[in-house]
Design a protein around this nucleic acid. Structure first.
Lengths: 249, 249
DNA sequence: CGGAAAGTTGACGCGGGTCAAGGAATGTGG
DNA sequence: CCACATTCCTTGACCCGCGTCAACTTTCCG
């Protein structure tokens, strides 16, 4: 079975940055063909990651950024007393590994939640490329800056919002992110467990479960295990009104 | 009075990046004299900001980073329903304005808590300079990346820690940041109000007040309004054991 | 001196955490 | 194919940390 998978996937990953449908979310935004070729050369395309496989771990020497082409990742860090804090989820077209650029090692870990294909971009090569492509430099800054505002939106959520508002904001964030890559914004599958959701939102798993039940009871959602159907986008939106950064959370 | 202040301060701000004692915290880290001169040329040195004066506001077109030379800033954003979320405090040697690089406008506001002298560094000039100084480019990425890991440490704090642990972590963060710029790590003055602390840590102002009283009662601190003396660094540390990113919060 | 802003302290109640028990889906070996 | 275990999720009962409300004190500043 692994052998067969290889064959299939070697084909499917033979894609250049130019062909990738995620361009406007990923780094090459606004590049011309020639520049894209250069970027294309430094990107390493791995065979697909298995579910539960680490992309990198906290403390690993950091050498690359990773762009998700398909699948989903969970970023987290672990405290000394052993428990885990989920920092975020990465969907196709999004980038992880930014937190490794400060001191040579990743500050967090990143693990796949489902089978994923991922592009690796070594820092050094990116840096060199930035020297010749000012546009890339700016785009990288934009990505990093976006990450900061996203995290800050999350701070607001955790500091000021009720459990209900947090879950609503979380669902709307997923919805809009799926929509922006051409998928349905009403219907989608959660790639992560209740455990992960609760951890991420600073809530007990039981609270998450109760809220899903409550949302369903009030006609906001239809929930079946990990399948979500948003029935009343309006009211869901009104619950998080005033929350900044609904973009990615 | 404003006139007099002007005179005093024109003298005190006549300093080049080379002379600045904050070099290893600020951008010029590891630059040679010639490179420093170039950076020096693009830095705009303002006359001191008055307490309560905005450095920039959310929504303003973003053009520059700002390095704090003395004083202290508060960064915050405002929700649609009017309330404020404090995102962080900026001490001398630290930089704000990173969240403006993503889409041409600042996502947060920054205001002085006390009289402050601040260096302004326009993005464009920095970008140009990065083309000729690869070291600066890397250093900027490091600063931005650091900001991300800091915010993520804060997410952990808000998501998983009790009120007690949050305040302890906050005080230790201030302590180590003051120490790293040559001040006492035991004794310092809080530049911010209880209001700001509570807002930042996701706590009610009354809770903050009670915790200060409790810490004092147990011999951890001496608190007198905004003057803090840390009496038992050991035990304070043991309260936040396991929290990541105690560096800046 | 008066009025406002900042900080402290006590009483009370609720949101959501914790504990416990019980489904439902998926995997595993016989 | 079925017993059985395991993981994930749900639901109920209880209770505690911290937010809310309110009264008071202290400091600040004209």
């Amino acid at each position: 079975m692994p052998a067969k998978q290889h064959k299939i996937n070697i084909d499917s990953i033979k894609v250049s940055c130019g062909d990738c449908s995620l361009t406007d979310l990923c780094l090459p935004h606004g590049m011309n063909g020639q520049d894209m070729d250069k970027l294309d050369k430094i990107v390493r395309r791995h065979q697909p990651y298995q579910p539960g496989q680490h992309v990198y771990r906290a403390g690993d020497p950091s050498r690359s950024l990773f762009a998700v082409r398909s699948g989903a990742l969970k970023s987290y860090c672990t405290t000394q007393d052993g428990d885990e804090q989920v920092l975020g989820f990465t969907l196709p077209g999004e980038i992880v590994g930014l937190d490794g650029m400060s001191d040579g090692a990743y500050a967090s870990s990143s693990i796949t939640l489902e089978t994923a294909s991922i592009c690796e971009m070594p820092y050094e090569a990116l840096e060199d490329l930035c020297q010749s492509l000012p546009g890339l430099n700016r785009q990288m800054m934009r990505v990093v800056s976006k990450e900061i505002t996203t995290d800050q939106g999350m701070l607001l959520l955790l500091g000021k919002r009720t459990a209900e508002e947090r879950l609503a904001a979380f669902l709307l964030s997923l919805s809009s992110r799926y929509e922006s890559r051409g998928l349905s914004r009403q219907t989608f599958n959660l790639p992560m467990s209740r455990q992960d959701i609760g951890n991420y939102l600073g809530l007990a798993i039981e609270t998450v479960s109760r809220l899903f039940a409550s949302f369903q009871k009030h006609g906001l959602l239809s929930v079946n295990r990990r399948e979500i159907i948003i029935l009343d986008m309006q009211r869901l939106n009104s619950m998080v009104e005033g929350c900044a950064g609904s973009s990615k959370l």
